[in-house]
């Protein structure tokens, strides 16, 4: 389905990750492996810990237990002998440039144009020249079909266009892995597909994608692996075929019976 076989970077290994907010444990020992160039889709009811899991991968949330590595390199820590040293801010920022993230609410910088949004991080986080960042930014905007809107401010764009700029912005750092946190949840229904189409293209490009979404048809289409999360745990994972058509766990079945339309639920 994807070119996973040819991709050589972007192996994501999540091992027994735990995270609590106050007294509530939102991640209860989650493990998940995504092969280089693979596409993992995480589904599940709201409050199941999907977004939190995604945010631990680029260290926006610090884990309380377990560890995450990308291409064998620990996220947020350095191995020194038998000890794990917490990385300093500067090194964490450097790691983050290898992990792109696309947010539910786009979070574009409203006072910068589409192109400035895309070209900002490569210059200040990777030290590329402004000229190069601009050129690459235009290329990426072209790739998401927005080259002619390069000079527009986010508020002058539709939701779907904003999210496509946000994807271009994440791609500008040439990340090994891209994280999508419900990328279409804030969009009007007729704008969802233009964003999903861009993600579909990316799925073929050899970048590892980890996607949290409620778009089940899309998930089935694009995923190598589907993980169903509930109450801070991955209840079941497998190929889209397995998970959607033949779920083993009662919780998975009951969830799909609520979200899948009858026609789809073969």
């Amino acid at each position: 389905m994807t070119t996973a076989a040819t991709a050589t970077r972007g192996l994501v290994e999540i091992t027994k990750v735990r995270k609590s907010f106050g007294a509530t444990e939102v991640l209860k020992g989650v493990s998940l492996t995504v092969e280089p160039g693979g596409v993992a889709v995480i589904v599940g009811p709201s409050g199941s810990g999907k977004s939190t899991l995604l945010r631990t991968i680029n260290h926006l949330e610090k884990v309380d237990g377990g560890f995450i590595s990308i291409d064998g390199k620990l996220v947020g820590y350095e191995v020194r002998g038998e000890r794990l040293l917490e990385l300093r801010e500067k090194e964490i920022l450097k790691q983050r440039t290898e992990i792109g993230m696309v947010f539910q609410n786009f979070n574009l910088f409203p006072h910068l144009t589409a192109l400035e949004n895309v070209a900002e991080a490569p210059v200040v986080a990777q030290g590329r020249s402004k000229e190069e960042a601009r050129r690459r930014g235009l290329e990426l905007l072209d790739r998401v079909g927005l080259k002619d809107r390069a000079g527009a401010y986010p508020r002058q764009l539709s939701g779907g266009q904003q999210q496509r700029v946000a994807i271009a912005r994440a791609l500008a750092l040439d990340p090994k892995t891209l994280l999508f946190d419900e990328p279409t949840s804030a969009l009007d229904p007729e704008l969802v597909n233009e964003v999903l189409d861009v993600i579909r293209e990316l799925a073929k490009s050899g970048t590892t994608l980890i996607i949290v979404t409620h778009e089940m048809g899309f998930a089935r289409d694009v995923a190598d692996t589907v993980a169903f999360m509930d109450e801070g745990q991955i209840v079941e994972q497998g190929s889209p075929e397995q998970i959607f058509t033949n779920p083993q766990e009662p919780r998975t079945r009951s969830f799909f019976s609520k979200v899948l339309e009858p026609a789809f639920n073969i």
């Binding site: 900002e120 986080a125 750092l173």
Partner: peptide, 10 residues
């Protein structure tokens, strides 16, 4: 958050 995720320094 978006700026931090992009690795932009503090």
């Amino acid at each position: 958050e978006a700026a931090a995720a992009l690795g932009i320094p503090a």
